[in-house]
Design a protein around this nucleic acid. Structure first.
Lengths: 149, 149
DNA sequence: AATGAAAGCTTAACGCC
DNA sequence: GGCGTTAAGCTTTCATT
């Protein structure tokens, strides 16, 4: 990792405010306008910055039913299953995990009915032997900041 | 307070590209500059847009050890415990869930050693009776888009 | 790598419909 | 609610160090 202190500061700033003007970043770091512009371009093309996005309020938009699904698969099939599950828009996270189950999914839908459907679909996938679901009654925290200190 | 088609389109666009110029959004939607500006301001102040952020690459930055922790608490204590856990930067998600455990945490750290420390800390919290941890061997998908149709 | 300067574009505020 | 105008501010490029 060949990031210097300035790069890390830029990443921290943009992680916290993705729309901040580059000229304002330059001001805060006491550097030239063009320098920050070049640095940000480089951070983007090297892949450190994957995307800029507006974070929407899931509750206000009523897309706030969250569930976690543990999936067991036939021996060695979990990667293949995971690739297929990745195409489902309602599945936000797929992790291959240690322990009893093979995959842990985080699912987010508008209504419980959609969850039921999805579970039926997952259950019918080739290589899936078992699913177990836990529903979130309340999501106390959902933040995705990386701690760059 | 309700969103119309234009609002939804704006949210979709900004969710996918949080740094897109408002004038470009206006162009795409065939509307005036000032109109889009007003709409976005309103979406922000109503809370539909919670934040703008750069999404950083956790693997490139080597902050890529992910674990899920199930926490059991003394009867009725889980909300209090959750509030306290929310202050830990490494804990990205806290959900109150159905089933055997009371809380499900998603944790993200630079090294397993930090995870061990965190688990010790959590275990010592008042009201926590038991924790069980699953480590993610690979995270196949981690996306946080809301499906606005 | 970093910079200042300048052209072109964007934002934000205003008044009008 | 939607729009055009405008001044101030921003982005991007380029020649220079």
């Amino acid at each position: 990792m060949d990031l210097d202190e300035v790069d890390r500061k830029i990443l921290k700033i943009l992680q916290a405010d993705g729309r901040l003007a580059l000229s304002e970043i330059a001001r805060r770091l006491n550097m030239g306008n063009a320098t920050i512009h070049e640095r940000v371009n480089s951070l983007e093309s090297q892949g450190y910055i994957r995307q800029y996005r507006a974070v929407l309020d899931a509750e206000l938009l009523s897309i706030d039913q969250v569930a976690f699904v543990r999936v067991k698969t036939n021996a060695g099939h979990f990667s293949k299953v995971a690739e297929r599950l990745a195409e489902e828009a309602a599945i936000q996270e797929i992790h291959e995990i240690t322990g009893d189950a093979d995959l842990l999914l985080k699912v987010r839908v508008r209504e419980q009915a959609v969850l039921s459907e999805l579970l039926a679909t997952i259950g019918s996938y080739d290589g899936v032997t078992e699913t177990a679901t836990e529903v979130a009654l309340r999501s106390v925290k959902e933040e995705y900041d990386l701690n760059l200190e």
